[in-house]
Design a protein around this nucleic acid. Structure first.
Length: 828
DNA sequence: GTGTCATACGTTTTT
DNA sequence: CGTATGACAC
């Protein structure tokens, strides 16, 4: 392997120097590089390198099958990240490539960071030497900075975030003379995003799409948007992928250089790739016949939950066709969860069609392991209360004698509005919680303002930044002045800051505005001069001081003002980690998250989507009701595939749990301000009885059980007939319970034994027995008949209009037609 | 330019 | 029902 690298063009500064002074192959030992350290690690034990020990056979195969295409189907909790990082370490240790010759792509910055850290641990020391490990977007930026001119940009282009994009589009819509209320900029931004996810440029978009917006001007508007970006020397997120794709396509010589450069390619979360990312990857990974395609994609089709934003599960299903001779390795040994949790999750996901079909298993089996618990509550308030109680019980340790940390518990919801009820409850309880994934640091008003100042100093052509802060703080440069300036700039095709310098020489503006504008220009000239001389942190402070921005908040007497000032300080502090203001800006445009406080012991509350990749000892999954989960809109707009994605989301939720998983559903939930009667989720029906307990004791089926004061719901207080009322559904349900199958809403299921191992039913094996509860139609006839007059606590009196098993459709006198479980009504 | 009223809307989200 | 955004008046 002596001279194989000689012909490889290097683009990295570091290897470039090395090539000039040293042999091309990675240094054997003693060097400072990551490869050298890895090789040293290998040499210590030639037979079985350290880093390979402790891998199971499949993991080891995935690590050691380094040449040729490999698809690793890694189920939840099967050591996916470990495989990826070890594989990289292996490539380095065996001297197959320099760190800079490995392209490793992730979806989130967090994943990239984690991977870097873990490779560092394996190889010893920090991983400065992996310049091409990052997100699709951060690698896209890197590529684009090098070849910007081929995309009609300068290499110092700015990256716009969604907020900038929307403001820009709004301007364009108005410029077209269109009504921006009828054609919301936000919506069009979404459309552009979707097009770009599919790799479509203005000429490629379907005629129907083009017509659907702005009186048929969709395509022109998209084109105008791209033109505007070019004049602004700016990019949106989609362009970070699309521009490189276009460059690779139009310049085969450049693509060839990268082919030579990237000897090994790895992709994480492959099931989440969209069409544009797929195109990008294929361009880089596919080689002429006979040339090895060393590409390794890792993913899990069962965890594909981003179809709605353009991810194509097909990409993973199609891998073997795209890369002929691909080795497919399944990782099914789970190191995370109990067999009950895996059993429940596996049985649920088996209801999906078109899977690649994995079955997670574990050796660990402990008779003390808790089954997955299904709980019922009357309404969402009681749900929050009961979850809070369970959390406190675990915390105190009365459940199993062990005290559990709040950090090991999480509540995973389908939609963020569900969080509020939990937050309210936890505030009253004084229970620490943390909301993960909410509004982010860099999206805050004051941070965005400050960033706009910095952006404009570094990039004088950034008109969006200019418009944002030209009158913040107030300088008497109102709408009219800005519009005049805007038109002036557009007419001459120059950036607004430059136009401002010109316009103050004319008499187009009123003297007052002219003076104010002059001061702004002077300030920016000043700061720009200091950019190279002054340390960026000092400069940042000076900018915020001299512009009057910090004063603006100091003089603000509102409650948030102190917090905003604190955030600005935090912003300055976070700049310390960067060597220049430009470096910082680049980081922020790509990494919108800020670290959470890990020291505090707190329950995590987050959406199921943001829980992917995480794990907790105890997981609470509230809101398993038809319409919410699966979500009605997913059903309406996505049909069967929409339902399957919801089911995958449920699967993701359950598999986050290591030891305990509590699922909840309620009978009444407030949706859009109105109380709605809700049906238990169909996913509950799809859980295997064998691994699930229906917990009756604590909550008394939403307060209906009436055993002791504990479960008293406000229903009991509100209704004088509560006691008599508490009988029908619940008592019948209890009477119908069989030993193995506890059946919660009065439907007799009858399947006592699970006959088919979870996951063994092939793609078409839809008949799955041993479910928790039989399907909607009950085997026992309803005690009600059509036309019966009934009473419901929330909806009052009504007549039965239809009966399906235990589900009644009732025309209520006041509340209109609703579907409710028969257990919740009483004949009058 | 700021504050107040009216109206619309109401999954999931990274980069 | 609650929030977020926009229009309009002061």
């Amino acid at each position: 392997m002596s001279n194989v690298f000689d012909d490889i063009p290097f683009f990295d500064e570091e290897p470039e120097q090395r090539r000039a002074s040293e042999p091309a192959a990675p240094p054997a030992a003693g060097g400072l590089g990551i490869a050298a350290r890895a090789m040293a690690a290998r040499d210590q034990n030639r037979a079985a390198p350290d880093y390979l020990s402790g891998l199971n056979p499949e993991q080891r195969e995935a690590v050691e099958t380094v040449d040729g295409p490999v698809l690793v189907l890694a189920g939840a909790g099967t050591g996916k990240t470990r495989v990826l990082t070890t594989r990289i370490a292996h490539i380095l240790a065996t001297g197959r490539a320099f760190p800079s010759q490995i392209l490793a792509v992730t979806f989130t910055n967090k994943a990239a960071r984690e991977m870097k850290e873990r490779i560092g641990v394996l190889v010893g020391g920090a991983v400065e030497g992996m310049p091409w490990l990052g997100t699709f977007h951060s690698i896209g930026v890197k590529l684009l900075r090098r070849h910007a001119e081929l995309a009609g940009l300068r290499s110092d282009f700015t990256i716009l975030d969604t907020d900038d994009v929307i403001r820009l589009i709004k301007q364009l819509i108005q410029a077209e003379g269109l009504d921006d209320k009828r054609w919301p900029a936000r919506q069009f931004a979404g459309m552009i995003d979707n097009w770009k996810n599919k790799g479509l440029t203005p000429k490629d978009i379907p005629e129907g799409d083009a017509r659907a917006f702005a009186n048929g001007k969709g395509r022109e508007l998209y084109r105008a948007y791209q033109d505007r970006l070019k004049t602004l020397n700016a990019c949106d997120f989609g362009d970070l992928l699309l521009h490189p794709i276009a460059i690779f396509r139009d310049h085969p010589d450049i693509l060839k250089e990268y082919h030579a450069k990237f000897r090994y390619i790895l992709v994480d979360e492959y099931q989440d790739t969209n069409t544009a990312q797929y195109m990008w990857l294929r361009l880089l990974a596919q080689r002429p016949k006979g040339v090895p395609q060393n590409v390794c994609c890792v993913g899990d089709d069962d965890q594909s939950i981003y179809g709605w934003r353009g991810a194509e599960v097909d990409n993973i299903l199609r891998f073997e066709k795209d890369f002929l001779g691909a080795r497919v390795i399944k990782l099914e040994r789970n190191y995370r969860s109990t067999e009950h949790i895996l059993g429940a999750a596996g049985h649920l996901i088996a209801h999906n069609e078109g899977r690649l079909g994995k079955t997670l298993f574990t050796d660990r089996s402990d008779p003390d392991d808790e089954k997955v618990q299904v709980h019922a509550a009357w309404d969402s308030e009681e749900e929050a209360r009961a979850v809070g109680e369970e959390i406190e019980r675990l915390q105190r340790g009365d459940a199993d004698g062990k005290k559990h940390a709040l950090n090991d518990m999480a509540i995973l919801v389908r939609a963020s509005f569900q969080m509020r009820e939990f937050e309210d409850r936890f505030v009253t309880l004084g229970l620490n919680y943390r909301v993960v994934g909410g509004p982010r640091f860099y999206e805050r008003l004051e941070i965005r303002d400050a960033m706009a100042y910095f952006r404009l100093v570094c990039q004088p052509a950034d008109d969006l930044a200019f418009e944002r802060i030209v009158n913040t703080p107030k300088r008497g440069l109102g709408d009219t002045t800005v519009r005049t300036l805007h038109d002036y700039a557009r007419a001459r095709d120059v950036p607004m800051l430059a136009a401002a310098s010109e316009i103050i020489e004319t008499d187009e503006l009123k003297p007052k505005a002219r003076k104010a504008l002059f001061d702004v220009i002077q300030s920016f000239r000043n700061w720009q001069e200091r950019l190279e001389k002054t340390p960026h942190i000092e400069l940042a402070e000076q900018i915020l001081e001299e512009s009057g921005y910090t004063d603006m908040w100091k003089n603000d007497k509102s409650a948030e003002a102190p917090g905003r000032l604190e955030n600005l300080k935090e912003l300055i502090r976070s700049m310390e980690a960067f060597e220049s203001m430009r470096g910082f800006l680049e980081h922020v445009s790509l990494v919108m998250d800020a670290e959470q406080n890990e020291d505090l012991d707190a329950v995590s509350i987050m959406t199921l989507h943001s829980a992917k990749g995480l794990e907790f000892d105890t997981v609470f999954l509230p809101g398993w009701e038809e319409g919410l989960f699966p979500h009605q809109r997913a059903l309406d707009e996505g049909g069967r595939s929409g339902l399957e994605e919801e089911r995958r989301l449920a699967y993701v939720g359950i598999t986050r749990a290591k030891r305990r998983c509590h699922i909840w559903f309620v009978s009444n939930r407030r949706i859009h301000g109105l109380w709605q009667s809700t049906m238990p989720s169909r996913f509950l029906d799809e859980l295997p009885a064998h691994h699930v307990d229906v917990a009756a004791s604590e909550s008394n089926y939403g307060g209906y059980g009436g055993r002791g004061g504990y479960g008293q719901s406000r229903f009991d207080k509100a209704d004088p007939f509560a006691n008599t009322y508490s009988t029908p559904g619940w008592k019948r349900a209890q009477a119908n319970q069989t030993n193995a199958t506890r059946d919660n809403w009065g439907t007799r299921s009858g399947h006592a034994v699970e006959r088919i191992g979870y996951g063994e039913n092939g793609p078409r094996g839809r008949t799955i027995e041993g479910e928790l509860v039989a399907k909607s139609v009950a085997e026992t006839p309803s005690q009600f008949t059509l036309g019966d007059r009934v009473f419901h606590i929330k909806f009052g009196n009504g007549n039965i209009a239809a009966i399906e098993g235990n589900k009644l459709t009732i025309d209520f006198d006041k509340a209109g037609q609703k579907r409710v479980l028969e257990g919740f009504v009483e004949r009058v």
